[in-house]
Amino acid sequence: AKPPKTVTVKVEVTNADGETQTRTVTLTNLPKDLKPGDTVTLPETGQTARIVEITP
């Protein structure tokens, strides 16, 4: 079996106070056609994050 493909992405997350924070997260099994501006759900927090940058 192939190991899951991990991708490092820079995302913007809005916290409970309405502040936008930029975080770098490593995600696995992202859709192939994901692009900056799309939103993903962070598995560890369940927060919705907007992708700023994808590092191949």
Rank of each mutant, 00 (worst) to 15 (best):
G46N: 08
E53T: 07
K2F: 12
P43C: 09
R23P: 01
R50M: 14
I54P: 01
E53H: 05
T39H: 10
G18C: 04
P43E: 07
E12P: 00
G46Q: 05
K32W: 15
T39C: 10
G46R: 03
T45H: 03
V13E: 02
R50N: 04
D33V: 06
P43W: 08
T41Q: 10
L30D: 05
T20L: 11
T28I: 11
P36M: 06
D17H: 11
P56M: 14
V11G: 00
V11C: 03
A16Y: 07
Q21I: 15
P36T: 06
D33I: 06
T20M: 09
V52Y: 03
E12L: 12
T6E: 10
V7I: 12
P4R: 05
V9L: 14
T26I: 13
T22E: 10
V25C: 07
T22R: 07
T24L: 14
T20A: 07
P36E: 08
T48Y: 07
P36F: 04
V9A: 05
T6F: 14
V25H: 03
T20S: 08
T55Q: 13
V40M: 10
A1T: 13
V52Q: 03
I51A: 01
D17E: 11
G18P: 01
G46V: 02
G46L: 04
V52R: 02
E44H: 10
D33W: 13
A1M: 13
P4Q: 13
D17K: 12
L42Y: 02
I54H: 01
I51V: 15
V11M: 04
E53R: 03
P4G: 13
E53N: 05
V9H: 00
T6G: 12
V11E: 00
P4S: 13
D33Q: 08
Q47D: 10
T48E: 12
P31I: 13
Q21E: 15
K5T: 13
I51N: 00
T48C: 09
G46P: 01
E44T: 08
T26G: 03
V7C: 06
N29A: 08
T48D: 09
Q21A: 10
T39S: 09
T41Y: 15
P56A: 14
P31M: 13
D38A: 04
I51Q: 00
P4F: 10
V13M: 07
Q47P: 00
T8H: 07
P36D: 02
Q47G: 04
V13L: 10
K35P: 00
V25A: 03
T14R: 09
G18S: 02
V9M: 09
Q47L: 09
T6Y: 15
T22S: 06
V40Y: 07
V11W: 03
G46W: 03
T8Y: 09
L27H: 01
T39Y: 15
I54N: 01
E44Q: 08
G37Q: 01
I54G: 01
T28M: 11
T55G: 12
A1C: 10
E19R: 11
T26C: 06
L30A: 14
V52L: 14
A1D: 12
G18I: 01
V13N: 01
V52M: 07
P4A: 12
P3N: 07
K35A: 07
L42I: 11
T28S: 12
T28K: 10
L30E: 05
K35F: 05
T24R: 05
A49T: 02
V25T: 03
T8L: 10
T26R: 08
T22W: 11
T26P: 02
I54Q: 02
R50Y: 14
R50E: 04
T8V: 11
K32P: 14
T28A: 11
K5F: 14
D33Y: 09
G46K: 03
T26W: 09
T8A: 05
E44M: 08
V13W: 15
G37R: 01
P3F: 08
G18N: 03
V13H: 03
I54E: 02
T6P: 10
T39K: 07
P3D: 11
D17G: 07
D33L: 07
A49D: 00
T8N: 06
T22F: 15
E12H: 06
N29R: 07
T26N: 08
L34K: 04
D17P: 03
E44C: 07
T45G: 06
V40I: 15
E19Y: 11
D17T: 07
K5L: 13
V9D: 00
G18A: 02
A1G: 12
E44N: 08
I54S: 02
P31S: 14
T28R: 10
V7W: 15
L34P: 08
P4I: 13
T28D: 09
V52C: 03
N29S: 09
R23I: 15
V25D: 01
L27P: 00
L30V: 15
T6H: 12
P43K: 05
P36Y: 05
K32Q: 11
D33F: 09
T45E: 03
D38G: 03
R23K: 14
R50C: 05
V25Q: 02
P56D: 14
G37I: 00
V52I: 14
V52A: 02
R50D: 02
Q47C: 05
Q47R: 04
N29G: 14
P56T: 13
L42R: 00
K5M: 13
V25G: 00
E44L: 10
E53D: 06
E44A: 08
G46T: 03
P56V: 14
T24P: 01
L42P: 00
G46I: 01
G18W: 01
N15L: 12
P3C: 05
V11K: 00
A1L: 12
K32G: 13
A16P: 10
I51S: 00
V7P: 02
D33P: 08
P31Y: 14
T20C: 06
V11R: 00
E12Q: 10
P4W: 08
V11I: 11
V11A: 02
G46F: 04
V13K: 01
A49K: 00
E12V: 11
E12K: 05
E44G: 13
L42Q: 00
K10I: 15
E19S: 15
L34T: 07
A16T: 09
L27E: 01
T8E: 07
A1H: 13
K10N: 04
T14Y: 09
A49E: 01
V7T: 09
T39G: 02
T45Q: 03
V40F: 14
K10Q: 06
I51H: 00
E19N: 10
P31T: 14
T48P: 12
V7N: 04
T41D: 04
N15C: 09
T6I: 10
V9T: 01
T6D: 06
K5C: 09
T39I: 15
I54R: 01
R23C: 14
T24E: 09
P56I: 13
L42D: 06
A16W: 09
V40P: 00
V11T: 01
V11P: 00
A16I: 09
D17N: 12
K32S: 14
E19H: 11
N15G: 12
P43A: 07
L27G: 01
V13A: 03
V25E: 03
T45S: 10
Q47V: 05
L30C: 05
T55N: 13
K5A: 11
A1K: 09
E19A: 10
G18H: 02
T41W: 15
T22D: 03
T41I: 15
K5E: 10
L30Q: 11
T55S: 13
L30F: 15
T24N: 07
K10G: 00
N15T: 12
T14H: 06
T28C: 09
K2T: 11
P43S: 06
E53V: 04
T45C: 03
K35Q: 09
V25R: 01
T39P: 03
A49R: 00
L34R: 02
I54K: 01
L34A: 14
T48S: 10
T22A: 05
T8Q: 10
P31G: 13
Q47N: 04
T24D: 06
T20P: 05
L27Q: 01
K10V: 15
P43F: 06
D17L: 11
K5G: 09
V25K: 01
T22C: 08
K5H: 14
P4Y: 08
